[in-house]
Simulated assay, not measured.
Amino acid sequence: MKEEVTDIGDYMKVFACTAVMMQSVLSMVLATSPSQNYQITIGIIYNLVKFTAPVFIFGILYSTTRNSKKKYLPYLKTQWSALFIPTIIWTSIYLLVFPKLQQVNSYHNIGGFIWQFVNGNAAPHLWYNTMMLQFIMLMPIFWILADFIKKNRNYTFMIVAVSTVGYFIWIYFYDLTVFNGVHNQDWYLLDRIFISFIIYGILGTLAWVKRVQLEKIIKVIWPFLILSFIVVFAWTNRELFSFGFPIHLSNAPYYKPSMTIYSLVIIGLIITIAIKQINSSSKNLPLIHFLATYAYRAYLSNVFWLQIIWQFGGKNIAYINPLLGIITCYLLTWILSFSSAYIFHIIWSKAKRVVL
């Protein structure tokens, strides 16, 4: 595979960020109690974009394994600026400006504020930050894995097999005790512990180390991936609609065999697109890399902008025509999220130069 500035991880980040904004919009429009036909449409679209967290984790581990010099403190310093500071800023904004967006509980004192801040309950989408930042902190483990595979190439299949079996055991445990179990409410934090997405981190790391072999495999199996997408997508929709109406998007969690397989198939399809465009030196590469650079910050802000759009006309459009409301709110949210991510980055960079 050609060595390009734009890599497979960039494609993963852009696809994930673009799709996750749609999840936020769909949740808000569904809360307006649209007709059953619109609920079906929302459910189908939601399942279509329900791959974001796995894809983002895969992309981050791929790009980090590729670009990292494996020096932990310099690495953390870089991530502090790129990830932790935006997280701190946006989490504070949600808790102070839109406190009603808090999940599970609300803060009433300093201790409660800190707890909501760190556990991902400050806004509907911030649970993901709590999980993803754990991967950033644990990156040395994945460096060790990458080095091990480089020195012991014959162990790749075994690692993939053991990881897959172990992960599906975890999913079975989660389904038995949480999703369909007695701990549905009190064990909700399990969905933001890194182990719940560990397989995507492992595969993202291996994908870079074994990139040459991966490209050969993808060029052979991509038609099978398309067929698998159709079958598994139908499976996820059947599961969601089996719960009846009204539709509850919480009935489509990541921690199911169907959703896991769907996420892996989507990862394979995105790799297919990325390989084709990278190898052909597509004109899209600079744009993909640019968007990937600001994807995480755009993700952090998307619910903030959606709230504003919703209050200044988005809600009214959704009540009149839910589909038009989805399209309008989504496009405006995407534009404002990426634009603000870029503008705030420029402002922050200039402010640092003045202060330092």
Results as ranks from 00 to 15, higher is better:
Glu3Trp: 06
Asp10Leu: 02
Cys17Gly: 10
Ala19Ile: 00
Ser24Val: 00
Val25Ser: 09
Val29Arg: 04
Val29Gln: 04
Ala31His: 13
Ser35Phe: 00
Tyr38Ala: 10
Gln39Ser: 05
Ile42Tyr: 08
Lys50Asp: 13
Phe58Asn: 01
Ser68Leu: 06
Tyr75Asn: 09
Leu76Gln: 15
Lys77Ala: 13
Leu83Thr: 07
Trp90Gly: 03
Leu95Asn: 03
Leu96Trp: 12
Leu96Lys: 05
Leu101Ser: 09
Gln102Asp: 05
Val104Cys: 01
Tyr107Gln: 13
Asn109Ser: 10
Phe113His: 10
Gln116Asp: 15
Phe117Tyr: 15
Phe117His: 12
Asn119Leu: 12
Asn119Arg: 12
Gly120Ile: 03
Asn121Cys: 09
Pro124Phe: 08
Trp127His: 10
Met132Trp: 02
Leu138Pro: 05
Met139Pro: 01
Ile141Arg: 06
Ile144Ala: 13
Asp147Glu: 15
Ile149Asp: 09
Asn154Leu: 13
Tyr155His: 09
Met158Ala: 11
Met158Trp: 11
Ala161Pro: 05
Gly166Gln: 06
Gly166Leu: 06
Tyr167Thr: 00
Tyr167Asn: 05
Ile171Arg: 05
Phe173Trp: 14
Tyr174Met: 07
Asp175Asn: 12
Thr177Arg: 14
Val182Met: 11
Gln185Asn: 15
Asp186Ile: 04
Leu190Val: 08
Ile193Glu: 15
Ser196Thr: 08
Ser196Phe: 00
Phe197Cys: 10
Leu214Lys: 05
Val220Tyr: 09
Ile221Thr: 06
Leu225Cys: 06
Ile226Met: 10
Ile226Arg: 08
Ile226Thr: 04
Phe229Pro: 07
Val231Met: 12
Val232Trp: 14
Phe233Gln: 05
Thr236Glu: 07
Phe243Ser: 03
His248Ser: 06
Leu249Met: 02
Asn251Pro: 10
Asn251Leu: 08
Asn251Gly: 07
Ala252Asn: 08
Tyr254Gly: 01
Lys256Gly: 04
Ser258Glu: 14
Met259Ala: 11
Ile266Glu: 01
Ile266Phe: 06
Ser281Glu: 14
Pro286Cys: 12
His289Gly: 05
Tyr296Ser: 08
Asn302Gln: 15
Trp305Leu: 09
Trp305Thr: 03
Gly314Asp: 11
Lys315Met: 13
Leu323Pro: 02
Ile326Ala: 07
Ile327Pro: 00
Leu332Pro: 08
Thr333Tyr: 13
Leu336Thr: 02
Ser339Thr: 01
Phe344His: 04
Ile347Asn: 09
Trp348Ala: 15
Lys350Ser: 07
